[in-house]
Simulated scan of single mutants.
Amino acid sequence: MTRRDAVFAGSIPKFYDTLLAPLIFEAYAADLAELVAVSSPDSVLETAAGSGVVTRALAPRLSAGARYVVTDLNLPMLNYASSRQGADRRIEWRQADALDLPFDDASFDVVCCQFGAMFFPNRTVAYTEARRTLRPRGRFIFNVWDRIEENVFADDVTNAVATMFPHDPPRFLARTPHGYHDIALIREELSRAGFSDIEIETHEKVSRANSARDVATAYCLGTPLRNDIEARDAGLLQVAIDRATMAIANRHGEGPVAGRIQALVIVATG
């Protein structure tokens, strides 16, 4: 992962939430919210909350007296999430690093994280922090994307943009969001952090958008792929969107379009 991979600033949070969230995140957020809420937890910590997709899905499922702490290291994303949520006295918004959580031991029944673990510089440390803040038999629930080849639109966009920079292709999507899918490694890092009961399932879904251009715009403007492209030539950002649009349209039609997405869903208990 490069330093640019974790920069979600400027207009990225808005495009991320308005285009990318319905494209690939909302269906998995509903699944994650259901997994968290099934045990009727009194206290929940969400790390790497991003633009609040899980927060909006989970908050209505928690009891009136529940404590829900929502965190992200990236303040622009956290501020955007808070602005979308509306008033809810149960929710505490905190800027926090998942590798150094500012909470006491055994503070939460559940720690959850949607598609954030791939960005952690040291996942074992982050998992150790999650376990430290969990009460006995508390659950750590999170998901990560499967390999990019199992996620059709991300692969299409990556390959299309690569043709513009053949000697230095922008590989953000393959490198980071889709770069942590080795189940044996995930189990090893969770075990090293002290988790003993680890369940990992593969969940396949269908990603849908109104048009090929919506998909291309979502990935090129709503993720740090934008940073990758602009670092090479900022003047070619629109060209990259056009190139990705053409590739998706050639394969899936102008729109509406649909493509397979796949993720790993993990439930770990200490």
Results as ranks from 00 to 15, higher is better:
199 E>F: 10
157 V>M: 00
93 W>M: 11
211 S>N: 10
125 V>K: 15
173 L>T: 01
207 S>N: 12
108 F>S: 10
231 A>T: 09
65 G>L: 13
52 G>W: 15
270 G>Y: 12
177 P>C: 01
140 F>D: 12
34 E>C: 08
244 A>N: 01
160 A>I: 02
63 S>K: 05
73 L>K: 02
128 T>P: 08
150 E>G: 06
249 A>K: 02
242 D>T: 00
227 N>T: 10
141 I>S: 03
245 T>Q: 08
206 V>L: 03
51 S>N: 09
265 V>Q: 15
43 S>V: 06
127 Y>T: 01
190 L>P: 08
2 T>N: 14
232 R>C: 00
256 P>Q: 13
145 W>L: 06
224 P>K: 10
125 V>Q: 13
156 D>K: 01
175 R>E: 05
56 R>N: 02
201 E>H: 09
216 A>T: 00
48 A>S: 10
232 R>T: 01
107 S>Y: 06
95 Q>E: 07
231 A>Q: 10
230 E>V: 13
210 N>T: 13
11 S>M: 14
141 I>W: 03
149 E>K: 12
202 T>G: 09
17 D>W: 01
19 L>N: 08
186 I>M: 04
118 M>L: 06
80 Y>M: 07
233 D>W: 07
244 A>M: 02
76 P>H: 07
30 A>T: 08
30 A>G: 15
149 E>R: 12
97 D>C: 14
241 I>F: 02
148 I>Y: 00
175 R>N: 04
246 M>P: 05
58 L>D: 06
99 L>Y: 11
38 V>W: 12
96 A>Q: 07
87 A>M: 14
250 N>A: 10
262 Q>P: 09
40 S>Y: 14
29 A>F: 04
270 G>A: 13
234 A>S: 15
11 S>D: 15
147 R>H: 15
74 N>D: 05
